[in-house]
Write a protein that binds this DNA or RNA. Sequence first.
DNA 1: TTATCATTTCCATATTATTGGAAATATGAA
DNA 2: TTCATATTTCCAATAATATGGAAATGATAA
Lengths: 116, 116
Amino acid sequence: MKGAVTALSALAHESRLGVYRLLVTAGPEGMAAGAIADALRLPPATLSFHLKELSRARLAISRQEGRYVIYSANFGNALKLVNYLTENCCGGRSCLPECAPAAEAAAAAVIGAETL
Amino acid sequence: MKGAVTALSALAHESRLGVYRLLVTAGPEGMAAGAIADALRLPPATLSFHLKELSRARLAISRQEGRYVIYSANFGNALKLVNYLTENCCGGRSCLPECAPAAEAAAAAVIGAETL
DNA sequence: TTATCATTTCCATATTATTGGAAATATGAA
DNA sequence: TTCATATTTCCAATAATATGGAAATGATAA
């Protein structure tokens, strides 16, 4: 729960959500901080602050490569968050049509998480 | 994007995330504000503030029933948000093992959203 | 109407997040 | 070593959000 709030807070900002989605798109190879800054037109100090927030929330991972710092999405934790938001839909009873799709997504997310 | 940030901000708070998850569990029938207050031990003024935030973010819907106000989760929008967080994983290329589960969850969420 | 219960609004206070220039640090190249 | 590039830290001003008691509003029943 605490972790979910931290992760949601990290994503609840236009710049950071942009960074996160860029990293999701980039995949496990990730992107250098400078490349992210160029893509989103953020000043270095500002981006660094946001990257630190995403890392603190365990939604991003960094590694050093030469003189670059490469950031990538933490897919496992992102998926846990997504699952947390849809789990236990309708108290486990069979869902009414209004929410059945949420239950499907939750089930798929659980399966995905287990294979990580 | 703006909507996603609003929704994430709404969820990025311990009390509101608790309310949202309670409503997801409750299903489409929803719960009266007072029942939510009892379940989460929140003072009426505080809960009202948070319910307004969730409604403003379109994650909760309210309806009047007698002298009760019943809140329920907005499953459609919650699912859109979940999908937004996982879409375009690895730029559409076939995913490496590290992120493949995220792509599966995203695909399932998209299918679910279309049936709403 | 009058009483009762449910919920929201008002409000002042307290807390926390965001910004980006300039300087510091780190890595590798010449 | 000296230079160039990449990233982070420092900092202080600004802005947004959370809290809950008390009063107001809304709805129904007696």
